[in-house]
Design a protein around this nucleic acid. Structure first.
Lengths: 340, 340
DNA sequence: TCAAAAATTTAAAACGGTTTGGGACATTTG
DNA sequence: CAAATGTCCCAAACCGTTTTAAATTTTTGA
């Protein structure tokens, strides 16, 4: 049903009906109520594409999905969707070809120019992130999930990676560990750098020399966790503790330790960062996994809020949110063995 | 830049330009080429919302995302996106509140009526799936990922769950196992039923009585894998083998076996279904995990193809695809212990 | 009571494209 | 060489809303 017909049935003009439905003040309360009721009864809904054309708004926000196994992606999306479902705003997912970095910038460019989205969410930024510069230049509103050092104003939501890893590392030092390995995220991402810094600062604060042979970078996969852990554990003296970038990494570390006959929580301590997944929980691992913890789903939900605020005019400079991270100690951390 | 201005710069009428860009035959090859080149050079792109309004097409397909930990969701999406990125079609994600089943049907209804999408993909259907009936009634094209017994024509893409589990179970029987436990997916989903059937048929074919105390249903989480496996292993006699619905379930089973001092691959065999994740691979587990295997990402990509075919008029009845499933044997399966 | 002000409602002009129905020109046919 | 056939191109109508500017009705104030 079109607005025209609907209005006719009500004996009103299209204008009045449109205004009544959009909550303009120029329409009397009585009329508004009648229109709302009849719309519900007759099932009238404005044609979304006509609305989009005339308002110039897309009614959607864009998210670019990396190809390489991002298992936290669906949690973030879940949070986003949860919050955006209430508004009448869609989530538009674009795929990215990780293998072709030039493609990425084109992708963002297309997304921004195409008019399909009103805003974009940028993930896993780098300190000098081209995408941020591009979106700023194009005037497309965007929220960065993470942070960047780039000299371009950008709204962001991030967790305190540096503080989290500093605390985790400090805790391991407090327990008596001196050789602490770290398996971090992909080289070059801001969050990896922040975690590196937290780790180094914690060591430095206690006068423990930084050993580059104890730090590795890579995707958050079980396999890399295993391979790095394995190669670290083969060093002599071997590390007595690990700081892991993700739950999957931790799985790999557990596996590596076991494969070498080492008992987690006694001979090797592990703290991982946990994004909180319904299907894999740190508490249930054996031994239960000590973790720095921050809900990815909550971040998604909050990101939706912030994007909506940006769109309704809140200035970019105001939208910066840094979330603290919990440190939850469980069985996987303990003092190092005496003859470590 | 608008069509008007762009056409003017070319010294052509908007009509001709529009036709040239849309590949109509009434335009000479020479003109078409010139228009295409200039469009690229000047960066002209038709306003997507105007196109949508006038053509009545949404240029997007919808996917409903369940709330409960669906870690395979992002793999499916990845495949979908990969294929749809080439076309000019968006993916629209809607969230679903799992706790409110009435909400689900409303959600699909809204999605269908809203005109935001040209087609919908339905996940994890049930034998008598209300959503399928609804979409059919509303005349919204849709593809079911999975199958349903409902008496409504529907296009679907599914893997041979029944055959996969039948083979997996048969293999365990061949190895000598007699008490085989199965930890399946959520009760009521068609794929769970198919797997149940495959399991029972395999037992029956070898004259092994079906014991309901060896079968459990639930979400694919590490935790449920652990809890069910644990309770099964506490039975006497205990099962000597497990068929697991997912990688996460398998993780839980490994954990349960270990927690009871049982060695996987010697005292307990495990076969799981593997949707193929970049971050957690069956091959890397210790011991490496035997698995029925089918790429979720490939299913997503193919689903995109099939939806496009539906939209371009291929009849629903023709679009049925059943994929065979590989069975890959690794270290987690072996004959049962002699005194089992 | 009546003009002015305020509150409602409406007609018409966008929004930026696609597509229908011709018209102009070039090419073939009888 | 006129008529018939193709090939390109164009003007105008239309998609279904929102919004501006104007018209109408109601309320207010002297």
């Amino acid at each position: 049903m079109k607005l025209r017909e609907f209005a006719q049935q009500l004996g009103l003009s299209p204008t009045t009906v449109s205004r009544a439905l959009s909550g303009y003040p120029e329409v009397s309360e009585k009329t508004r109520k009648r229109v709302a009721e009849e719309a519900a009864r007759l099932g009238y809904r404005p044609n979304i594409n006509a609305v989009r054309l005339v308002t110039g708004r897309a009614g959607a926000i864009g998210v670019v999905m990396g190809r390489s196994g991002e298992f936290h992606f669906s949690e973030f999306m879940g949070g986003l969707a949860e919050r955006l479902g209430a508004e009448d705003i869609d989530i538009l997912v674009s795929p990215m070809d990780d293998k072709n970095p030039t493609g990425e910038i084109q992708l963002y460019s297309r997304l921004a120019v195409s008019g399909r989205v009103d805003a974009v969410i940028v993930h896993s930024p780098e300190p000098n992130d081209e995408r941020i510069a591009l979106l700023h230049k194009l005037g497309m509103p965007f929220l960065v999930h993470g942070r960047s050092d780039i000299d371009v104003p950008h709204a962001w939501l991030d967790i305190d990676n540096e503080g989290a890893i500093r605390r985790a590392t400090s805790h391991l030092i407090d327990l008596g560990h001196r050789r602490i390995a770290m398996i971090n995220g992909r080289q070059g991402r801001t969050f990896s750098l922040h975690r590196d810094k937290g780790y180094r600062d914690a060591l430095e604060a206690r006068g423990i020399p930084f050993d580059p042979r104890l730090v590795a970078h890579g995707n958050f996969t079980d396999e890399l966790g295993f391979r790095f852990a394995r190669s670290f554990l083969e060093q002599t003296p071997r590390p007595t503790a690990f700081v892991a970038g993700s739950m999957m990494t931790a799985l790999g570390i557990y596996r590596a330790a076991r494969s070498m006959g080492l008992e987690i929580g006694r001979e090797v301590s592990v703290i991982a960062h946990d994004d909180v997944f319904p299907y894999l929980t740190a508490e249930n691992m054996v031994p239960s996994l000590s973790a720095t913890r921050s809900s990815m789903r909550a971040a998604g939900a909050r990101s939706a809020d912030l994007v909506l605020q940006l769109l309704s005019g809140r200035p970019t400079e105001e939208v910066h949110e840094l979330w603290p991270v919990e440190l939850i100690l469980r069985e996987s951390t303990a003092p190092p063995p005496q003859n470590g």
